[in-house]
Amino acid sequence: MSAEAIIEAKAVSKWYGQFHALKDINLTVHKGERIVICGPSGSGKSTLIRCFNRLEAHQEGDITVNGIELHPKMKNVADVRSNVGMVFQHFNLFPHMTVLMNCMAGPMWVKGVSAAEARKTALRFLERVRIPEQANKFPVQLSGGQQQRVAIARSLCMQPAVMLFDEPTSALDPEMVSEVLDTMTGLARDGMTMVCVTHEMGFARAVADRMIFMDAGQIVEEGKPDSFFGNPQHARTKLFLSQILKH
């Protein structure tokens, strides 16, 4: 692939105390690429993507995001974070602000955009996730699926170079899962660079350029969706896929 690398992780290791949570991770995310990470619970998927915007610190190896290297003494972490959107399992909207304000806050307070400008951007992205009519409500007044779509819009308002999703649908009721996945599929179609931790294999098959399977802090297998689902190489991948696709 020749496109420029947005995220580059080289030989990354991370420990929680004695516990080795990430072991020698090498991963490059290119511009426009859609990557889906899956793996059993506790395998380090969240830890890995949280290292990409330095919500977590890695101890060994290098992570470079948008050309900026992440390290403990960095001064410009805000530059990295405002370029990396993150969507959480539990939405984490700001409950004391309206939906509109949730979306306006980032551009106004980090980028210094004027209120009018921020409002226009916010409404555009709320339109895009198809809930402009909820703009003046508070997050608690929305359903789970709507809240997650607001969270996506909130991240998009920062016009990030890459979006990270950490199991965005696993706290949702089944009928709300598809509205969020539809939004994400739309984003993928528009060329957004995405790294998604998810167990929604239908979504993965449809949008992923590359599948990554993690177990016990390591990348065990990676490949194109076709070969990944059709012909997994590793026993652990096979076992995991057979379990997750059983239902």
Binding site: A78, R81, G106
Partner: peptide
Amino acid sequence: EASRSMGFG
């Protein structure tokens, strides 16, 4: 986390 991930100090 949400606040920090948006780049707020």
